[in-house]
Write a protein that binds this DNA or RNA. Structure first.
Lengths: 346, 346
DNA sequence: AACTTATTGGAAATCGATTTCTAAAATATT
DNA sequence: AATATTTTAGAAATCGATTTCCAATAAGTT
C-alpha cells in the first residue's frame, strides 16, 4: 500500500505565543505550566489564565522529544476483537488513564511478520513499554530481544516465550487444567481427552502438563490417542471429537483449551446422538459469554481477563517502571476459577 | 492518582551517529533514509548499510515535531471490550497498518467526563485524526468543537451528534428497523413493541423513526405504551417485557435495539411460560455471537461492525485526509442485513 | 572549449517544549 | 546597614529529526 503524505497542520498556540503576549520568557511559561517551584505563584496564575484564554494545548510531541519518554504504552495482541484480548486491553486502559498514559494498540492476526512490524512501529514511536501476547506463529524471538536492546520496558502476557527473559503475567495454566481434570474426575468421568493448542506455545505445554499430572495423581490411565494439539477452532474440535468418539476406545470427557473447541465437541455429540453431561463431560477455557447461554451450558475455566489487564498495567507502574535495569524480572500469576455448568455436572 | 515521572531512557543511535561514522552530514543521512531524489544511490546504500549495522531506529517523535503530523489516529469508544466496538477497532487497525498509521485507543466507559479527557489527551498527543463514538452521557459537544478548533481531522461513527458538523459513518438505522418491523409483520406479528436506547442519541431516534414509519406503511396500529426508551441491558429488557406482557393489551413481538435486551425478553418469556417464536416474536440488533448459539436462536440486525471499522479508516485515507478545509463533509452509510433466526420465524 | 543546466552534498534553521545555568531581586542574618 | 542566603526570571542549549537554501561538482549543449 502506498504511503500517503499529509499536509502540515495549521499552527497551534505555543508557549512562545503565551510568553510574547505576557512579556515573559518561554522558559518561565514552561515552568509555570509544569508547576515548578522555581516560579512565583503570581506568574503561574498569569500563565494559566492566558493559556485558558488563548486555548493553549500542550504539545506532547515536543515535550517527549526533550524528555526522552512518551507516556505511551504499546500493546500487541493477536486479535483485538477476541473477547479475551479485548477484555485485557480494556483492563490495561482502565489503569493507564489513571496514570495519564495512552495506549497504542497493534494486532498481529496470528502472523509473525505482522508481529515483527508491530514491534518496530512501537520502538519508532518511542513507547515507554511494550506489552505483548505472542502470535501462534511466533517461534523466533529476535524481535523481542530488539525491544530490550532499545531499552524499552517489556512485559509478556498470556502467550509468553520463556526463551526471552522478561516480566510475565500469565494464568497458572498447569494448575488450571489440573483443577479442570480433577473436577471432571470428581463428576465420575474416567477417560478424559485433552484438546490443546500449538505445542510450541508455553501456555499449552503448561496446560498439558497439568492435565498429565492430574491423571497421574488421580490414578487415571493416560492414553496418548486422547491427546491432541493444534485444536483451536470450533471446526477442529468438532472433527477431532467425531473421530475420537468413533474409535474403539472412546473418551468420556473432553478438556478443551478453548470454549470454541468445546462448542465443536458439542456439535459432534449432536451428530452422534450423544448428550452432555450424561454421556460425555466437557470443560473449556476462557469462560466466554456464550458458555452460560447455550444448552447445555458449558463448564469453563474463568481466566479473569479484565483483571489480568489491570494486573499487567499495575505491574508496569508499580515495578517495571521503577526497575531501571530491568533485572530481577518477575512473573505474576493471575488466579483462575473452575466455573461448573451443566456440561460437566452429573 | 499521582503522576509518576520516568527516568530518561538510555540514548539510541541517531542520524548524527550515522553521519559521524560515515563522515557525512546529518542532513544527507536524513535524505538518504527518506529516499530523497536529491541524494545519490551510492550514499543511500552506505547509509542504509550503516544503519542496519548500528541498529539505527528512526525516532518518530523528532520527525513528528518537525513535520507537524504524527501518523497516529486516535479512537474513542465507550467500551473497548464490547464486541461491536472491538470489531470496529479491529477493522480500523487492519486498514491503518497498511498506511503505516498507528492507533491510540481510549474508552469512555459511557462517561462524558472521560470522553472530554480522552479528547484532550488525543489533541495533546498531536494525533492526525480522531474517530469517535459518543458515550451515552454525551449531550454537550464543546469538546468536539475543540477538535475542529485544533485543526484535527474528525470522524464520528455509530453514536454521532448531528449538532456537530463532521464526517460520519453510521448504519442506516431508520432503514434497518424499518426492515426489522417489516420482517416481523411478514411473519404474522401485529402488535410490535419497540425497546430503544437513550432518546437523545440520534442513533435511537433514527431507529424509532424507522419503526414508526414501518408501522404506518404496513397499516399496523401504533401504541405509545409499546414504545420504551432507555432499555439497554438484559435486566432492563427482562423487566420491561415482563410488565408489558402482563398488561391488558399485550404486544406479540419485540424489536430490541440490542441483542442483550432480546436476551432479557427471552428470560421474561420463560417466567411467563410463553415461547418464542410461537407466542412472541423477537428481533435484536448487532448480531452478537451468542444469538446463533442459544435456544431459540435470536434474529438480529447484522451491523457489519468489522466492515464499518474498515470503512471508517478508508474514509479517512481516501477523503478526509485530502480535504484540507474539512468542508463538504460526507456521511457514509454501512449496509445492514436482517438475519432471520428462530425467534422471529413462524 | 566555453557555457548553461542538473545533480548532489552540506550548513543552518526549524519544530515546541524542557532544563541548566546565571544573574538580578527579594529576603534573612548578623 | 552591610552582608549572606534564598527566590525567581530569563538566556541559551538541547532533544533528533526535516527542510530550505546554497555552493560545488557533474553532465549536457552549442
Amino acid at each position: 500500500m502506498a504511503i500517503v503524505h499529509m499536509a502540515k497542520r495549521e499552527k497551534r498556540i505555543t508557549i512562545y505565543d503565551l510568553a510574547k503576549s505576557l512579556n515573559i520568557a518561554p522558559s518561565s511559561v514552561s515552568k509555570a505550566l509544569n508547576n515548578s517551584h522555581a516560579i512565583s505563584s503570581k506568574i503561574k496564575k498569569m500563565v494559566e489564565d492566558k493559556a485558558k484564554e488563548l486555548n493553549y494545548i500542550h504539545n506532547t510531541n515536543a515535550a517527549n522529544l526533550r524528555r526522552g519518554f512518551t507516556r505511551i504504552i504499546g500493546v500487541i495482541v493477536p486479535k483485538i476483537n477476541e473477547s479475551f484480548f479485548a477484555n485485557i486491553i480494556a483492563g490495561i486502559e482502565k489503569v493507564c488513564v489513571q496514570y495519564q498514559y495512552s495506549l497504542i494498540i497493534c494486532q498481529t492476526e496470528e502472523s509473525l511478520e505482522k508481529e515483527v512490524n508491530a514491534v518496530k512501529t512501537l520502538i519508532r514511536q518511542n513507547v515507554d513499554c511494550i506489552l505483548i501476547s505472542l502470535s501462534l506463529e511466533t517461534q523466533t524471538t529476535a524481535h523481542l530481544e530488539e525491544i530490550k536492546n532499545n531499552h524499552i520496558h517489556f512485559i509478556q502476557f498470556d502467550r509468553v516465550s520463556p526463551a526471552v527473559d522478561s516480566y510475565t503475567v500469565v494464568n497458572d495454566n498447569a494448575a488450571a487444567s489440573y483443577q479442570a481434570v480433577k473436577h471432571l474426575a470428581e463428576q465420575g468421568y474416567q477417560k478424559i481427552a485433552y484438546f490443546g493448542g500449538p505445542a510450541h506455545l508455553n501456555l499449552y505445554q503448561e496446560r498439558k502438563k497439568g492435565y498429565k499430572n492430574a491423571l497421574k495423581d488421580l490414578g487415571l490411565t493416560f492414553n496418548e490417542a486422547f491427546v491432541k494439539d493444534e485444536i483451536i477452532s470450533t471446526e477442529n474440535g468438532r472433527q477431532e471429537a467425531l473421530s475420537l468418539l468413533q474409535a474403539d476406545v472412546k473418551p468420556d470427557a473432553f478438556l478443551c483449551t478453548s470454549d470454541y473447541v468445546s462448542l465443536g465437541v458439542l456439535e459432534a455429540l449432536k451428530t452422534l446422538n450423544l448428550t452432555s453431561p450424561k454421556d460425555i463431560g466437557i470443560i473449556g477455557f476462557a469462560n466466554e459469554m456464550f458458555t452460560q447461554l447455550i444448552q447445555p451450558s458449558l463448564s469453563s475455566v474463568n481466566q479473569f481477563s479484565y483483571e489480568m489487564g489491570e494486573q499487567i498495567a499495575k505491574l508496569y507502574f508499580d515495578e517495571v517502571m521503577k526497575n531501571k535495569e530491568n533485572d530481577k524480572v518477575k512473573s505474576v500469576k493471575v488466579k483462575t476459577e473452575i466455573v461448573e455448568r451443566s456440561s460437566s455436572s452429573r
